[in-house]
C-alpha cells in the first residue's frame, strides 16, 4: 500500500494489478453468463428470443454459456487458491473474514442512518457491506459452478446420485442466478456507481487508487494502519519534495 501525492490531493494504492485483472475477468464472465443464462431462463420473452436467434441459436447460446462458465470457474478457483495461499503461507491479513466487528458496525450504521448516532461505524479494509456482497457472490458462485456442472453432465452424475438431483440442480441454478444478479445489479451497482459517496463512478478497481479523503471516510482503520506503517517513509518523501521546491525557488 503506497501513498502518492498529486495536484488534486492524496491518492492511496488500494488494489494491486492482479486484482484489477481479476475484476475484469469476472466482469466479462459475469456479463456473458447473465446474457446467455437469463435469456434461457426467461426463454419466452421476445428479447430473449431475439437475442438467442442473433447468437446463432439455442445450441450456440448454451455453448457460449458453458465456455463463460469455464472462465468463471477458473477465475474463482484462482481466487480461492490465491487467497488461501496468501493467508496460510504468506501470513497475509485475512481481510475478508467476517468478524464480530462487522456485526457491531452494521448495527451502528443502521442506528446512524436512523439518526441515533452522529457518525457511521469506523471500518477497516473492507466494510461489512462489502463483505456481505463478497461472501454472497462467492458462495452463490460456488453453488452455480456445482449445479452448472451437474446440469452439464447429467448422465455422469445420475450414475452415483439419484435422478432428482438434476431438476433440483436446475431449480437451484436458475434461482441462485437471480439472487446473484440482484446482488450485483442492486447492491454492487449502487455502491460503486449511484451511491452519493462515489457518484458517478468508484474508479478504484480500475485505476487501483482511492483518494485519501474517501479512504479516511470509508476505511479509517486501514488508513490509520497504513499511515502508521509508512509514516517514516512518507515523512522522508515529503521532506524530499519540500527540499526540491526550495532549490527550485532558489534557482529562480
Amino acid at each position: 500500500m503506497k501513498e502518492k501525492e498529486t495536484g488534486m490531493g492524496e491518492r492511496i494504492r488500494r488494489f494491486s494489478t492482479s486484482l484489477i485483472v481479476e475484476h475484469w475477468v469476472h466482469v466479462f464472465a459475469f456479463v456473458v453468463l447473465v446474457v446467455t443464462g437469463i435469456s434461457q431462463k426467461f426463454f419466452s420473452l421476445d428479447l430473449s428470443r431475439w437475442l438467442i436467434l442473433k447468437l446463432g441459436g439455442i445450441d450456440n447460446v448454451r455453448l457460449i454459456h458453458r465456455c463463460a462458465g469455464i472462465v468463471f470457474m477458473v477465475a474463482a478457483s484462482v481466487h480461492i487458491v490465491g487467497a488461501s495461499v496468501g493467508i496460510v503461507l504468506k501470513k497475509r491479513q485475512p481481510s475478508m473474514v467476517i468478524t464480530k466487528n462487522d456485526l457491531t458496525d452494521a448495527v451502528r450504521d443502521l442506528r446512524y442512518y436512523l439518526g441515533a448516532e452522529n457518525s457511521p461505524a469506523l471500518c477497516d479494509r473492507y466494510t461489512y457491506k462489502q463483505k456481505f456482497e463478497y461472501w454472497g457472490i462467492l458462495t452463490g458462485g460456488l453453488l452455480m459452478i456445482a449445479t452448472g456442472l451437474v446440469l452439464w453432465f447429467p448422465t455422469f452424475v445420475v450414475g452415483f446420485l439419484p435422478g432428482q438431483v438434476i431438476p433440483v440442480a436446475k431449480a437451484l441454478h436458475s434461482n441462485e442466478a437471480l439472487v446473484i444478479i440482484l446482488l450485483i445489479a442492486v447492491w454492487h451497482i449502487y455502491n460503486s456507481i449511484f451511491s452519493p459517496e462515489v457518484f458517478p463512478l468508484d474508479t478504484s478497481i480500475f485505476t487501483g487508487y482511492i483518494s485519501r479523503e474517501r479512504m479516511s471516510r470509508e476505511h479509517p482503520l486501514e488508513l490509520m494502519r497504513i499511515e502508521n506503517r509508512t509514516q517514516d517513509e512518507a515523512g522522508r518523501k515529503r521532506r524530499r519534495k519540500a527540499r526540491k521546491l526550495e532549490t527550485e525557488e532558489m534557482s529562480r
Partner: peptide, 29 residues
C-alpha cells in the same frame, strides 16, 4: 443410467408429492 428417467418431472408441475426437493427449493427462493 437406470435412474435417469427420474431426472425428468414426468409431466407434473413440481409439487410436494411429485418432486418435493424441487418444490421446496423453488419455494425457499
Amino acid at each position: 443410467p437406470r435412474d435417469f428417467p427420474n431426472t425428468w418431472l414426468s409431466h407434473y408441475e413440481p409439487n410436494m408429492k411429485s418432486a418435493p426437493l424441487v418444490f421446496l427449493v423453488n419455494l425457499l427462493y
